[in-house]
Design a protein around this nucleic acid. Structure first.
Lengths: 159, 159
DNA sequence: TAATAGGGTTGCATTTTAAAACCAGATTAA
DNA sequence: TTAATCTGGTTTTAAAATGCAACCCTATTA
């Protein structure tokens, strides 16, 4: 049967995964961040089947993660560029990269060394933080129900 | 043909997606963070087909994102619990939630209000930060090649 | 003018997926 | 103590998704 979709799920994680949660979409976004813009760039860099790439690009454009720009002087030459919504996936992609580097490091090569362009210093580990910038684990957060004013110990954990 | 896998990809994002990049795996992890532990919990909360849930749980256990714990006094009663590797997906799940809330808000209900248990204040937006804690966009980072000492303007963008 | 690059679409065989039926060992209810 | 139910699966079946190769049409280049 058809794959389930989560378009109208009340869970925003499910809705997010509905747009970028398949095998290829986030990799397409990643390579767009690397600088890929043309159909053939994505195709060659990812080794993805052309029809699948077509489908994913179309869907990402429909979901406004990418925009399709006609760059041909006489038509029929296109670029796929990240929208603000697409660029906003940056923390997710970086968090995935750091998780992969930490738990499944490549045996033969060091992880990509991402640095702040302004200072040359490495970037931090992506983390959930409180208002003061302290890192929080899942145990440190709770879900505030409507109208609730103060944190309580017995609240269910969040996600 | 078979779906492509990225087990041995040199890209850590691809390797990460290989483990949690399908439609269901991250939702299983999310619900584990919510508190789900039993097979039936996941099945009912997610509405996932049982055979698919079986497969995903097995794969997550194989990849050490979850561990399967026998909790039956006389056997045959199990719990699936997050490992440290699994809990380490917290920033990714939260970043996805925030992205979904920002770009695809639920029409009829407010987003989940996650707060710091210690202070009761809302958590921050998950972001890529430099060493000082300043948020960085994709344009603010570069890839430092082996042996390079200083940032340069003409480096390719990172991902 | 022919060859080739860009951006696709179509057909086909193979996998995945979802749903429902089935199964076997505990546990609970009557 | 026997039947019903819960738990954690496996099997079967049909619909989609995937990957590959072949094809198409419009520029551009040799």
């Amino acid at each position: 049967m058809a794959r389930k979709r989560f378009d109208d799920s009340s869970c925003s994680v499910a809705r997010a995964l509905n747009e970028v949660g398949d095998w290829w979409s986030l990799l397409v976004v990643l390579h767009a961040m690397y600088g890929a813009r043309r159909f053939v760039d994505f195709q060659q860099e990812l080794g993805i089947a052309r029809n699948i790439l077509c489908d994913r690009l179309t869907r990402l454009v429909d979901n406004e993660v990418l925009k399709k720009v006609d760059v041909g002087e006489h038509g029929s030459r296109f670029e796929y560029r990240l929208t603000e919504k697409g660029r906003d996936l940056f923390p997710i992609v970086i968090a995935l990269r750091q998780w992969g580097d930490k738990w499944n490091p490549a045996p033969d090569q060091p992880p990509l060394d991402l640095r702040d362009r302004a200072t040359g210093r490495p970037i931090r580990q992506v983390a959930v933080q409180n208002a003061d910038g302290d890192s929080l684990t899942i145990r440190d957060v709770f879900v505030r129900d409507d109208g609730e004013a103060t944190p309580r110990k017995d609240k269910k954990q969040a996600g």
